[in-house]
Amino acid sequence: MSELLTPTFLTAFVASGILAGIPLLFAALGETIAEQSGVLNVGLEGMVLSGAFAGFLGTLATGDIWVGLLLGGLVGLIVSGFMVVFCVRLGLDQIVVGISIVLTAEGATSLLHGAMFGKSYPRLDAIPELKIPFLGDIPILGGSLFTQPAPVYAALVLVAIVGWIFRRTSAGLSLRAAGERPDSLDAAGVSVVTVRTIAELTCGALAGIGGAYMAIVGAGTFVPFLTNGMGFIAIVIAMLGRGRAWGPVLGALLFGMSMSLSTALQLFGIAIPVDVVQMLPFVSVMVVLVLFTRQSRLPAALGLPYLRGAR
């Protein structure tokens, strides 16, 4: 075991944990925003998947990672638009609409991929990494945390901004009020529907960017069902984060590591069956849920449509 704990191993472990965790971070951050405003976005998986496909197409066509990420975010935003129209505006059942978004996105991406590429899976070029001066020379952390593609740093900055908005701005207050006491917010003269619309669209865009990152940087390609339940894990992370912006960072890193543990071990010739590898993140989610159930705290009006005058 001791020879496992070499700098090379740890560097690879942390680096691949971050690689797997960043899409989760984006998606979970988006879901946190949506949940805080009272929208339970079950369709997150569908938004991540559509974003992944769009991002892959964007980068494949232009060779530019930023175009891919932008396109992924845009498509995620469009998909979340369905959630806005049906659930936020018309007050339809968030769970049924969410499930239908997941199904439709899975079917549509698979169909489009099949029609465009058939059985071939074109690969994207590797993404250049940005090594931060000085910090990048620290052992282990330097080669992993501080030598990452630029979007990773952007994600962390984003978390700080969202945290600031949550805590320090009136927009953040309105957001949380929309999730806890929508009627009070309405009485205070702020439109619940507008707040939730903005929150949900932001969530969709972030989920799309997360998916695009997963396809462009993580996988370097797109295969149907690429996300394989990642959106659902992001929902759990958002739930356990208790509405704090830093929650997703911790959760994403934890689950990213659990996904990458097997990859890192394989580097050392320790073979773990691929099924165990795929199960591991879900097992850790269940373990965390069972252990920390009481940690999760959800907004009071989560999942309930807000219709003026309706009780």
């Binding site: 609409v97 239908s100 439709t104 079917g107």
Partner: peptide, 24 residues
Amino acid sequence: ASLPSDFILYVVGLILIFMVITQY
């Protein structure tokens, strides 16, 4: 049609969404 059979997911997802709209 040389397409993946996942089109059924697409149909089923659409059915769900149209169902809630019709209900509404």
